[in-house]
């Protein structure tokens, strides 16, 4: 401890080694990961997010939806993710290669959303928009994503079925529409070679995926 130089070198190594190990180590393993081209379907998976969905991902990020929702499905034998219908297989690194803002999340106050796009609620955009306007149990209402607008002539086609003052209607903002497009795009279900569901009997192999 008396020698200042070795002390600082030690400190520096402490931070550098862990960084090299965890971050660079995974980088070497995953950095080259690319979408998987399926010859039969003639396209690559995961599919690119449409532009509007990419905007929606930013809305999801800046509202902090990840504070209550994860986007990572665990193996069928690790927790009840499969039994809850969140996905038949575990999420793998390739699912996220196209994402600029990965939202794995660390808390499940609400359900996992990694495969939300495949659920009935997601299929009907107008129902999903309506869902965001109202509170559902622990899921807060996001009314500030909507505007109250005066009806001029006909009612707008995208107006919500919600109570508004006479002569007014509730219209989703562009941010709400983008968010819904993003939620609909969440669909990690394609079976990559490395993503075949690990069933309990084969659990050991899953460890080294």
């Amino acid at each position: 401890m008396k020698n200042g130089f070795t002390f600082f070198l030690g400190l520096f190594l402490a931070v550098a080694l862990a960084w090299a190990g965890i971050v660079m180590g995974s980088h070497v393993q995953l950095g080259h990961l690319a979408p998987y081209f399926d010859e039969n379907e003639g396209k690559a998976f995961p599919e690119r997010m449409p532009g509007i969905a990419a905007q929606g991902q930013l809305v999801y990020q800046d509202l902090g939806c990840a504070a209550c929702h994860t986007q990572q499905v665990r193996r069928p034998d690790f927790g009840s993710d499969k039994a809850r219908g969140w996905g038949d297989r575990q999420s793998v690194a390739r699912d996220y290669v196209n994402q600029a803002h990965v939202q794995l999340g660390e808390s499940r106050v609400g359900p996992d959303l990694a495969t939300f796009g495949a659920r009935p609620l997601a299929v009907d955009a107008s129902r999903l928009i309506q869902y965001l306007y109202e509170q559902h149990g622990g899921m807060p209402a996001y009314r500030f994503l909507f505007e109250e607008r005066k009806i001029t002539g006909e009612r707008s086609a995208n107006a919500l079925k919600a109570a508004a003052p006479a002569g007014y209607e509730i219209i989703p903002s562009h941010r709400a529409v983008a968010l819904v497009a993003y939620l609909q795009s969440l669909n990690n279900v394609y079976e990559y070679p490395e993503a075949r569901p690990v069933e309990p009997a084969a659990a050991k192999e899953g460890e080294s995926k």
Partner: peptide
């Protein structure tokens, strides 16, 4: 002191157990 410094940050995968990351990260 040196144990904390040299081992501490390797616990980075603590919250990613069972997640879509290389399994060795969680093991470490």
């Amino acid at each position: 002191f040196w144990t904390l410094l040299f081992v501490g940050a390797w616990t980075g995968g603590r919250h990613l157990i069972g997640g879509p990351v290389p399994a060795w990260v969680a093991t470490i």
